[in-house]
Nucleic acid binder design. Structure first.
Lengths: 218, 218
DNA sequence: GTCAACCGTTTTGTATACAAGAAGCGACAT
DNA sequence: ATGTCGCTTCTTGTATACAAAACGGTTGAC
């Protein structure tokens, strides 16, 4: 799924949208971007098509591609779905998880704890990602893993922002412990519930953040 | 998201893959197909890109696009995810569903019943689809609705095949009644569970069908 | 003064031409 | 006889050229 250039360009464009370089509603000028990337319009158009399929841009026929940043409502919705998917992973993983994977989870958690104590939100983020990825894998359902990973990736920039919340890292840490405990005991329902809350709360936190930013601006 | 031709071609190619005209592993010859559709390679390639993104073909760099029919295992996995998504829709809908939508559900159910009695699996299928679509909508989560609809569409050809199972229509019908009852009472947990079973059983039935076909062939 | 229509410009969508990589085949050498 | 190297050919990936549609500005009419 990667003829080097179009693939590379798609990834770069994604980055530019994620980090906010491209504002919401901004049109992606094919010739300008093609020039900028030093390629012709053809591979660039392919990249844009891919962004459109992932929902990052709206493609309006004969008008062009317009950046489509999700608004607060859609973000909440996406986190809600994320919570459901992660919960499903957890429920399945509780039945199927291997001892080796449990050890990996505990290892990731230990590193998370170290990051919390070191107030190192970057490495916390990295280890947190590893933690969740293990659970996706251990669901034993490749398709679920794939879909969950896709949404996880899409929510990445927003999750990252809300990590700076006061006390969020410590709270998140505690939730991780509870999740591992539930998985250890093979308690799928509890693992699912805990994961659901763990993820859904991120959406709510983010919503609060957005609201506070908005009211501060007024 | 549609400059008429590429869009049209993508849909047609999808159909051809769904209905099995293109075998698993078959290479999609760009020039031959372009010729066949009466267009140049450019829009055809865009269509193929889209199929690749939806997972219908594997795109191997410098080698071409190869049809990728999901195997039995992947199908089970997809139905499992479908069950989770529908269950999530049900849980949310139980809290939010409007009286009008409840009436619509009952209406769809009545038509389903008529179709069962008339042994009309085509119209059963249509009404069944309407039934589920209403629940997706009433989840009140646009993103969830969108994702669920997408997967629903992808599983369409497989769901259809297993509908011919003896007694499946009647059983499915009874499950619909139970779902409506749970939604009426605002019992999200029960609505979710019932929906989950209702969908997951389809995957299992399909699996059985595949197995029986396979053993019959031996 | 304002609104509408027409023309020029810009930009997207499509076709075609070109380049580069991969597969198939044959010849040669071991 | 078999394996490998090189050539030919086919196919994909990219660039460019062309067509058509949409936007903007200007001009004219009411």
């Amino acid at each position: 799924m990667q003829q080097r250039r179009a693939d590379h360009i798609a990834v770069q464009l994604e980055e530019l949208i994620f980090d906010g370089t491209f504002q919401d509603g901004q049109r992606l000028d094919e010739v300008r971007l093609a020039d900028q990337f030093g390629v012709s319009r053809t591979p660039l158009r392919e990249a844009i098509q891919r962004l459109a399929l992932s929902g990052l841009v709206d493609l309006i026929p004969r008008r062009g591609a317009f950046v489509r940043q999700p608004g607060p409502v859609e973000l909440i919705e996406m986190f809600e779905v994320m919570a459901e998917l992660e919960a499903a992973c957890g429920r399945l993983a509780a039945r199927r998880i291997s001892d080796a994977a449990l050890a990996d989870l505990r290892d990731a958690n230990a590193r998370c704890r170290a990051a919390v104590e070191a107030r190192d939100s970057d490495s916390y983020y990295t280890e947190n990602e590893r933690f969740h990825r293990i659970i996706y894998q251990q669901s034993g359902n490749g398709f679920l893993e794939q879909e969950t990973t896709k949404l996880h990736k899409r929510l990445k920039p927003f999750r990252r922002k809300q990590l700076g919340f006061r006390g969020r890292m410590a709270q998140s840490m505690a939730e991780h412990e509870a999740i591992v405990a539930a998985l250890e005991q093979g308690d799928g329902a509890r693992a699912g519930d805990t994961l659901h809350k763990h993820v859904a709360v991120q959406g709510e936190k983010f919503h609060n953040l957005m609201a506070s930013l908005k009211s501060a601006a007024e």
